[in-house]
Design a binder for these strands. Structure first.
Length: 603
DNA sequence: GCGATCAGGT
DNA sequence: CACACCTGATCGC
């Protein structure tokens, strides 16, 4: 759950994914995707009033996000203030202070995030440096090297700060099977069931949130059917999704939900009823998509778990795993990383106290990485793997990021000793593949948007700032973005075996494997990536981000538990005096990042 | 009556 | 385990 306060240090006059409190005074708004926890304040009357009196304040998001947002009537007042942007298309935005007239230009580029339909990351480039706001994202290892606009020519751009979706930035979530692996598991289960008879149906017990659509489209494609859902309204302009969903309940795959879920489900397992139209009782299994993760040394594990006589849980994640995040960060090597979520596993043992509201204006990075050289040569930045895993220089600790977001603060440093050389080998290969796709960013690719009213008495017409293509072919633009979430499966084999294992308990069964004895040995797999890489086109991004990469292969020589995070030798439990000193610093806005030793000292 | 917040549930 | 969301209770305006 995002606890990002809405603003970035470098460009504090814009707000992202938060629209309340101080964000009300921002000069521009950005919405990374259409999930409620990133829309706080977005339907507030205060913001609505502000818009009515403003000539320049707009909300920037992807075309798909705009569509999804406006499909909810509560947000329909945004219609005239939304500026949808194409993916991978740098756009200059003028940030205007309407009272003073002061102006700052920034170039923003939307990058596919692979989290849900329309989800994007925002890359800001301007006088305060390059900053990447990830929103929520699920990118497989290696995907980042294929994002053209994170590169300048053959080099990785110098990213000053990354505002990171750190949901699973915790070694416990080391590995999450790729989308493709999960999808294959679900497909097999679904196929085995619905092939028995036409009265055998599957209910995908999905939460009320965008993000499952690629599951629908893939299953629909594979079984040549449509998926029963409650409403089609939000997809009316998204043909790739629309063609795979239906409100006709005479289908064997359901993802329907009842408004009164609970009471309804007491009597019947399928929200739309348990009998076929001819009265025949249906044979129903339910599949609940939920996040499953595996420890560092685990490799083969089921992505489907049987939780009852006719119910299953299937691996599904909207967010990148720990290893995926590490891959992402180690490739970009930002100076600062600001996590959206403090890694809860790291902090739990040391919950201290409630943050005061006063401290809520403090915003500190998760970790500061000092590069040893100001700008590594191109060859070392983008063509080869980073010399060592730079993530080891990111203390997992630190303190608060967005004060007030959590009720506790971690005061010790936990280390991340676990090393895996395989990852570096993989990176080398990924980057070899990646360079073909990296092109020089051309100035003329940038579209210009003047946000200022420039003295005219009429408010600017936003559509005027778009190319004819955007204006006349927005359907196409939707189409290209939707690729991300409803593409065909890449033809890539994977290594997870599908075993339908019954579990005794509904809880905590998924990670039993993680408790296997340390003597378990796994052969590290050589190479393995590279072949059949579906990432052929950065623009049809999301498609590929839905799973293609090999699971991380890890050496069995590591001795630590997948769950026990070893303590840093020099660390100590903070004493009351230390804590009160820390809180004082927090309240006064001083530097509070705990850094033990220098860059070299850490590793 | 409304929104914000929290607890508790899926 | 966790996410994203919903409902209902409570509080303040």
């Amino acid at each position: 759950m995002s606890s990002f306060a809405g603003r970035m240090k470098e460009y504090p006059t814009v707000s992202l994914d938060r629209f309340d409190r101080e964000n009300l005074y921002s000069r521009a708004f950005f919405l990374s995707h259409c999930h409620k926890d990133h829309m706080k304040g977005l339907k507030g009357p205060k913001l609505k009033r502000k818009l009515q009196f403003s000539r320049t304040v707009r909300l920037y998001c992807s075309f798909v996000t705009k569509e999804l947002l406006l499909s909810n009537p509560k947000y329909s007042f945004w219609e005239e203030y939304i500026v949808p942007l194409e993916l991978e298309s740098p756009t200059q935005i003028s940030l205007v202070d309407e009272t003073s007239g002061e102006k700052e230009d920034v170039v923003v580029t939307l990058l596919p995030a692979g989290h849900c339909p329309g989800s994007v990351m925002f890359l800001f480039e301007g006088s305060h440096g390059n900053v990447l706001y990830t929103g929520d994202f699920r990118l497989a290892a290696g995907d980042v090297s294929r994002i053209e606009h994170l590169h300048s020519g053959s080099r990785v751009k110098d990213i000053h700060s990354v505002y990171l979706d750190s949901t699973f930035y915790d070694p416990r979530f080391y590995q999450i099977p790729t989308r493709e692996v999960c999808l294959n598991g679900i497909s097999e289960l679904v196929g085995n069931w619905i092939s028995q008879s036409s009265y055998h149906v599957v209910w995908l017990n999905c939460k009320a949130a965008y993000g499952y659509e690629y599951l629908f489209t893939n299953l629909g494609e594979e079984f040549n059917t449509q998926i029963h859902v409650r409403s089609l309204a939000m997809f009316k302009k998204m043909p790739e999704i629309l063609s795979y969903v239906t409100t006709d309940r005479r289908t064997q795959i359901h993802a329907c939900r009842h408004p009164k879920d609970e009471e309804f489900l007491h009597g019947s397992r399928l929200p739309c009823g348990c009998s076929a139209p001819d009265g025949t009782p249906l044979h129903i299994i339910s599949i609940k998509p939920s996040t499953m993760w595996f420890g560092e040394r685990m490799r083969k594990t089921s992505v489907i778990i049987k939780t009852g006589a006719s119910s299953y849980r299937a691996c599904f994640s909207f967010h990148s795993s720990y290893s995926e995040i590490k891959n992402f960060l180690s490739y970009l090597q930002p100076v600062n990383v600001y996590p959206s979520v403090v890694p809860i596993g790291m902090l739990k043992p040391l919950m201290c106290r409630k943050q005061s509201d006063h401290a809520a204006s403090v915003y500190k990075p998760l970790g500061v990485l000092k590069r040893c050289t100001a700008e590594p040569p191109a060859s070392s930045r983008s063509q080869t793997a980073p010399p060592a895993d730079p993530m080891d220089s990111f203390p997992l600790t630190v303190t608060e990021t967005k004060p007030g977001a959590r009720d506790f603060v971690d005061c010790t440093e936990s280390n991340d000793e676990e090393e895996d050389d395989q990852r570096e080998e993989e990176e080398e290969e990924e980057e070899e593949e990646g360079k073909e796709n990296i092109k020089e960013v051309k100035e003329d690719q940038k579209k210009e948007i003047e946000v200022e009213g420039s003295g005219s008495s009429d408010p600017p017409k936003w559509d005027d700032f778009f190319t004819a293509e955007v204006l006349t072919d927005s359907q196409n633009s939707l189409k290209s973005q939707l690729h991300s979430c409803c593409s065909e499966t890449p033809d890539h084999e994977e290594n997870f075996s599908l075993t339908l294992s019954a579990s005794l308990s509904n809880h905590s069964s998924q990670n039993l494997d993680a408790y296997l004895p340390d003597t378990l040995l796994l052969q590290p797999e050589q190479g393995g990536r590279g072949q059949g890489d579906p990432w052929t086109n950065a623009v049809s991004q999301v498609k590929e981000s839905y799973g293609q990469s090999e699971p991380e292969e890890l050496s069995g020589s590591q001795v630590s538990s997948d769950f026990d995070i070893p303590s840093t030798p020099e660390s100590k439990v903070p004493q009351p005096d230390d804590l009160s000193q820390l809180y004082r610093k927090l309240a006064s806005g001083e530097e509070v990042v705990v850094r033990k030793g220098s860059c070299e000292g850490i590793r």
